[in-house]
Design a protein around this nucleic acid. Structure first.
Lengths: 335, 335
DNA sequence: TTTCCAGATGCAAGCGCTTACATCGTGAGC
DNA sequence: GCTCACGATGTAAGCGCTTGCATCTGGAAA
């Protein structure tokens, strides 16, 4: 691999000059600069990032650690995050954890060790070591996807709990009294857990007993949603509405309902959460909660860039959500 | 940020010993090792990646450059890629290009500069500079998602062209003679282009004229698919079958068909490509081409690891595809 | 012509780490 | 008790780059 030195020799200048050509071109007289540039071309030279990071102590790099890439909502948010970053000259490094807290800790250390200037994390449920590590270094970090107040860590997101509470209130308003919930896996996932909590709150506040809301968790797949739907439909009394922790599960539930010969929403209502594309493609279309993923991604980037460039704390930002009513929610049968 | 030196001082050993604790622990006597580990704990020390890369000249890092994260098929393949990598101790760095060749070149240089030991690229359409750069360095690279022979660059994928040809042959076999195609954007995207080419080949070989296959391109969204569907249905003669470059477009087309009051497949057949989850969720379910994304991801990782560890060329691998017949393809109307 | 200055360039230290080699300490063998 | 050998640890030289400071250069002013 060619080094700065190789370029310098070929261009008959010092390494300092080559470095300046790359970083502060105006400091180099055009004639020299051209000679250097030609040498760089010719050798197909690429600066060694490690060397650069070592010497300059900055990297213009931001790290993001997400649970999985296979989830459209993170993908979309990240894409937005990256757009803003790129516009400000930052490079995004993405790592995933498969929902494993141990792996997340590793990835945090890895990205910090790689010299990331800041970090994007999803949600709040994680090993305490991660927080200690980050706080000890006062490392610029923003947590996204679930809004929560916290000194020291910035945040952008929405209130999963309140959103789900509102959704279930709406379901109850349609006359449903016996509701099943297909939740996402709540272990290490505060978004999923908060959604369950929100649903429970809505039930309690409506004066309905806990038992009227059986909750079963399922992994993030259509098949899993279908499987749990089957169980829930065998539950006595049979729920007249199914609330799902996300749209993927809801689509699974919808498919299973059809397979069981149930009409939606006449026999059973189904609602989802996230408002991904899938939600408006199935028949009937899913009533769900719209979450501004792209806007969160943008906000996360802006917050991080703000801290990095001004050194000052920037306000966390909180987004609202909106219930999108479509065909899959209807009045409870037999009034 | 704490450094090796800080740890060494706190543990009252030399930096060499600390380094050995981290990299070759068996070379350090347990008593010392523990002391060092405690110091590392206490300082929450993380090795500086740049320093390490500089000194050891390797990074155990693999880079992947994909067009976009918002595409489920790349996400799934990448996840598989990463699983294999992680199992062999490699870390994956992901970058995206938004289908911009210039950005791709930058990202290649960036990842190489960051010390990636190898690279995963999607498809073959890219700036020639990228190939020159990679070949000049004999940089371990594997191209995925479209199989093609090439000296110097390894590959894993399937034959997009042949797969689409077979699919269209099947459509023709159902009696369709007037077929519309909603293609992905072919600019800078050889997968999309090959699929169009494959469709054309099938038409020609069946003795059908070019004009019997109007092709319109559309971006990768459901809405775009719907919009093009509308145009195609206005085409004279009206196609009796619509072939889509991917499932997302097909779902858009399907929705639009319903909106136009057309029955699928009685009035018009629609077929997709990729076999993503979406395909089996819509009604009728999509006839499509199954592509083994996860297996490609695994294969890509294995090929790369093979080259890296043995230094020898490993065989490229080629996957077959399979037409999945579901409800959306039927006989052409009026025999 | 000489002096001076500012802009262009070079010099060299050092960023945090690994590693070949030197050194030290210890227990086994005599 | 002495020697030897080997395993544990320390020493120090860079890896490729940036950057403060020193040096050089050419042209303007006197």
């Amino acid at each position: 691999m060619p080094t700065l030195n190789d370029v310098a020799r070929l261009a008959r200048v010092s390494t300092a000059t080559v470095s300046r050509c790359l970083n502060t071109p105006h400091q180099v007289v055009p004639r020299t600069r051209e000679r250097v540039m030609r040498a760089i071309e010719k050798l197909a030279y690429t600066p060694h990032f490690g060397g650069r990071a070592l010497a300059s102590r900055k990297t213009n790099t931001i790290g993001a650690i997400i649970p999985t890439m296979e989830n459209a909502i993170f993908a979309r948010g990240l894409q937005a995050f990256e757009e803003v970053l790129a516009a400000s000259g930052y490079t995004l490094l993405v790592a995933s954890t498969s929902y494993d807290p141990e792996r997340e800790y590793q990835q945090v250390k890895s990205l910090v060790g790689r010299g990331a200037d800041g970090l994007l994390l999803i949600g709040w449920d994680r090993a305490p070591e991660v927080y200690e590590f980050l706080k000890a270094r006062e490392f610029p970090t923003v947590v996204a996807w679930n809004y929560r107040e916290d000194e020291g860590i910035l945040c952008t997101g929405f209130d999963n709990r309140a959103a789900m509470r509102q959704l279930v209130e709406r379901v109850i308003a349609y006359g449903h009294r016996s509701i099943g919930m297909i939740a996402g896996i709540t272990n290490n996932n505060d978004r999923a857990a908060d959604r369950v909590a929100g649903a429970r709150t809505a039930m309690t506040q409506a004066g309905l007993p806990e038992a009227a809301l059986p909750v079963i968790e399922a992994p993030y797949t259509i098949e899993a949603g279908a499987a749990v739907m089957q169980k829930l439909m065998a539950h006595a009394p049979r729920p007249t509405a199914i609330v799902c922790g996300n749209d993927v599960l809801a689509v699974g539930a919808l498919g299973e309902a059809k397979r069981l010969g149930l009409r939606v929403p006449e026999d059973v209502s189904i609602v989802g959460f996230d408002n991904i594309d899938l939600a408006s493609v199935v028949d009937p279309q899913l009533t769900t909660v719209h979450v501004p993923h792209r806007r969160m991604g943008h906000a996360a980037a802006q917050i991080l860039i703000g801290v990095l460039q001004t050194g000052e704390a920037v306000d966390s930002s909180r987004f609202g959500t909106e219930i999108i009513e479509r065909g899959s929610l209807g009045p409870a049968p037999d009034g």
